[in-house]
């Protein structure tokens, strides 16, 4: 198996890792770096469970090749509470019961974080537009929207 080194920043930490040439960013994060908060739900970009923020934009990490990310900056769920306490978004998810099984939650939070980074007080429809690529089978989405709206309200 051909492996190649890659250098990148994940949650403001520098990494130099050897990865198989055909590895995805998701595989790099989970298997090589050991950050398993990011989940795989479909492997085909249809569910958003693997959402991370790559160079400021939310992406399905299952559809990014690891070697594309040379020099890139990646943010994952593990970076969301980097200051040692839960972020506003994480607190709002708990407050509003915005998860059940929790498997989609890391991806949901990263998509929501990317949205709030560019649009601090999104409307109901803007939230749906930005979050459409993240599937949840448990909650019916209502509570997730409430959590994101609440953070938007706080930031305002």
């Amino acid at each position: 198996m051909n492996t190649r080194p890659i250098h990148l920043t994940v949650n403001n930490q520098g990494y130099e890792v050897l990865v198989p040439e055909d590895a995805t960013l998701l595989e790099l994060l989970r298997e090589e770096i050991g950050l398993t908060g990011t989940k795989e739900g479909c492997g085909a970009g249809e569910c958003g469970a693997c959402t991370v923020i790559l160079n400021g934009k939310p992406v399905n990490s299952c559809l990014v090749m690891a070697l594309e990310c040379e020099g890139a900056s990646v943010r994952t769920i593990e970076g969301e509470n980097a200051d040692g306490e839960l972020s506003d978004l994480q607190k709002a998810f708990i407050e509003h019961n915005a998860f059940q099984c929790g498997f989609c939650t890391p991806g949901m939070i990263m998509s929501a974080r990317a949205l709030l980074d560019t649009n601090p007080d999104p409307t109901h429809d803007e939230i749906k537009e930005a979050m459409e690529g993240n599937l949840c089978r448990c909650t019916g989405y209502e509570a997730i929207i409430a959590a994101i709206e609440a953070v938007g309200g706080i930031q305002k």
């Binding site: 795989e40 708990i94 407050e95």
Partner: peptide, 19 residues
């Protein structure tokens, strides 16, 4: 009463079989 498992699930620390 809030869910018992909130912290693990919103931080990505909740360990599933695949992890």
């Amino acid at each position: 009463v809030k869910r018992h498992d909130g912290f693990e699930k919103v931080t990505g620390q909740a360990q599933y079989a695949g992890d």
